[in-house]
Design a protein around this nucleic acid. Structure first.
Length: 286
DNA sequence: AGGAGTGTTAGTAA
DNA sequence: GTTACTAACACTCC
């Protein structure tokens, strides 16, 4: 479930719940999930204090005492929650961080896609290529129009997978890409380097504003996302196209369609987001 | 039974 | 080097 707004929502919840807590010991029930090997992973964490929790793109970065950082990616269904010591362990709980205050920080992940890496603080980029190559955060200061013009201008990749590429802009996923393209009236099949300066400017503003709004709404719950407090997000009520196939476009009434683009379900309004010129060649018009 | 799902990476081909 | 498509990861839900 987690794109940047959901990961940020989790980060804020976890900060309230476990920042300042100290690890007593750690149990790993699905060893493939962690690196280095579970034995080293668990041994290194004993007695460490969770000093703070950062985020970069869709990665959570738990900062521990003694210059240790846990890099955690939730992938599709990863979730953290905090439970009293000894509560029943659900089927899909894969890692438990036992805290010294009789609570447990638990990682749950139905599909087991999530991954954790324990590294020395400061070596994150060396240890993880995707962190080293991560594009700017979608904020007013980090995502400049000049940057947008430069990177879009040199790629002929169509804009949907372009925006999903974390090395271009950090944190966007399938839901918010569809939403910002609808807000910007850009067809998902448009090649990145054919967008006009005006379109890039509009797209940039919509990305920045939409991500900020989604964070304010505590993220989007479409399948099973919940915050660290076990609550759902609110932003699913603010979606315009994702999950709205067959419904009328809020702007023009045309039926929202769903197609496959770059192997991902893609929702858009065929009237507000017309196909780019090079795709319309050969189409019969009146 | 078959397909799709909020993500990412590896492999292959053009 | 770039783009595009497939498979894989593992599991649930419709």
């Amino acid at each position: 479930m987690p794109e940047l707004p959901e990961v940020e929502t989790v980060r804020r919840g976890l900060t309230q719940l476990v920042a300042g807590a100290t690890i007593d010991h750690v149990d790993v029930y699905y060893p493939k999930m962690v690196r280095p090997d579970a034995e080293i992973f668990t041994a290194d964490l004993i007695g460490r204090k969770i000093e703070k929790i950062d985020r970069r793109g869709k990665y959570l970065l738990f900062r521990f005492s003694g210059d240790l950082t846990l890099i955690s990616h939730l992938r599709m269904e990863g979730k953290y929650d905090v439970q009293p010591e000894g509560s029943p362990i659900p089927k899909h709980t894969h890692v438990i961080f036992h805290l010294k205050d009789q609570r447990e920080l638990r990682y749950n992940d139905t599909r087991k896609f999530g991954r954790m890496r324990l590294v020395k603080t400061g070596t994150e980029a060396t240890e993880l290529k995707s962190l080293a190559q991560m594009g700017p955060e979608p904020t007013e200061s980090a995502l400049t129009l000049a940057y947008m013009q430069r990177v879009f201008g040199k790629s002929h990749k169509i804009v949907k997978p372009f925006l999903l590429d974390q090395s271009k802009i950090a944190g966007l996923g399938n839901i918010y890409v569809d939403e910002v393209l609808w807000l910007s009236k850009i067809n998902p099949l448009t090649p990145a380097d054919t967008l006009t300066q005006a379109q890039l400017s509009v797209l940039r503003q919509n990305i920045i504003a939409e991500i900020a709004r989604a964070i304010q709404g505590h993220g989007t719950t479409v399948h099973t996302f919940s915050t660290a407090f076990g609550e759902t997000g609110d932003f699913q009520n603010e979606l315009h196209v994702y999950g709205h196939e067959g419904e009328p476009c809020e702007r023009c009434g045309t039926e929202i369609v769903k197609i496959k683009v770059a192997q991902r379900g893609t929702h858009f309004c065929p009237h507000c987001q017309p196909y780019p010129p090079e795709m319309q060649e050969g189409l019969v018009d009146d």
